[in-house]
């Protein structure tokens, strides 16, 4: 009987602690949310503007830049936890010339537009391909790279034309990329296998979940160069596109500053240096002229 009592006492104590914790945490959580709401509210109360202007960023001393953290060699994190890559090389220069610190935000292909629409980042520098649909929601600056779509497939069955795809064949794409939009619009009959992250799509092609992987041609060229047994059967699909920084819709002060910066950097051949520092290991020198856009002027190719 005695042990039974002590067990009951334990349970009661447990229940008591839980209910106390309930009061504590239930009041703590809304309070924390309320606090951040209040501080954000004062900033946005005056106007419905969600973005920060150039002056506000400078005054704050920190710029939020959305980059990929798992897309080597454009935006990735090295073994010391530092952001690296072609996009990051440019971001570092932006931070330096603005005289502000950079807060990198790890973005995914599918949430880049959302980040700008909510002003949670100031600039997206995440291999962002310029498309008319996206341009309705965000403002693109001048381009700094060329890109087209490409399709890579295993050597055992190289797809050189989309018409080779049979009924049961599925093509791997990453959600929110231009490859996905292009295939849905132009080849709705093709079955797509969609993955949220680059890493998952890569695993999928390596495991043979789909017969081919459609993505930006830079990606598939790099993938085929690094992974023996895969060939880029379709190196250029659809139209030639460009990659550009993007800011929230209407953030003209920041947009103009970035455009001036890209033009000025053209004088010193900045993006060629960027290519040679970050991309040359992946693509070799052969692709330098076709991939790099200097001074915001895409070469007619």
């Amino acid at each position: 009987m005695k042990t039974k009592h002590s067990v009951l006492a334990l349970i009661l104590a447990f229940a008591l602690i839980l209910s106390l914790a309930a009061c504590g945490s239930s009041t703590a959580a809304p309070a924390a949310a309320g606090e951040s709401a209040a501080s954000a509210g004062t900033e946005t109360a005056g106007s419905d503007v969600i973005y920060r202007t150039l002056d506000e960023i400078k005054a704050d001393g920190t710029i939020n830049i959305g980059v990929f953290s798992d897309k080597n060699p454009f935006g990735y994190v090295d073994e010391n936890g530092e952001y690296q890559g072609y996009d990051v090389y440019f971001a570092e220069r932006i931070g330096q010339d603005l005289g502000v610190k950079i807060n990198y935000v790890s973005t995914e292909a599918a949430n880049r537009v959302e980040y700008l629409e909510t002003g949670k980042v100031d600039i997206i520098l995440a291999n962002f391909t310029v498309t008319p649909e996206r341009a309705e929601k965000v403002d693109f600056a001048l381009p700094y790279m060329n890109v087209a779509l490409g399709v890579v497939s295993p050597d055992s069955r190289v797809i050189t034309d989309l018409s080779e795809l049979g009924d049961g064949d599925e093509v791997i794409v990453i959600s929110g990329t231009t490859a996905e939009t292009y295939l849905i619009e132009n080849n709705p009959e093709i079955k797509l296998q969609k993955y949220d992250t680059y890493a998952n799509a890569k695993n999928a092609i390596e495991n043979g979940n789909g017969v081919a992987w459609a993505n930006d041609n830079t990606e598939v060229i790099a993938f085929a160069l690094q992974n023996p047994g895969y060939t880029v059967g379709i190196p250029s699909l659809g139209s030639q596109d460009t990659i550009a920084p993007a800011v929230s819709k209407g953030n003209t002060s920041l947009l103009e500053w970035i455009n001036d910066e890209i033009k000025a950097l053209g004088e010193e051949n900045f993006f060629h240096q960027d290519y040679e520092a970050t991309l040359v290991d992946t693509y070799g020198l052969d692709y330098e002229e076709s991939l790099v856009v200097e001074g915001g002027v895409p070469s007619a190719s």
């Binding site: 953290s69 798992d70 080597n72 073994e79 790890s106 949430n111 980040y115 949220d196």
Partner: peptide
């Protein structure tokens, strides 16, 4: 939660895999 920019264990894993893919 990696989809809203929180770098947790799986995201770090993907970052490490990608940084070393060559």
């Amino acid at each position: 939660v990696l989809m809203i920019g929180v770098v947790e264990v799986l995201k770090v894993a993907q970052q490490i895999i990608e940084a070393n893919r060559m």
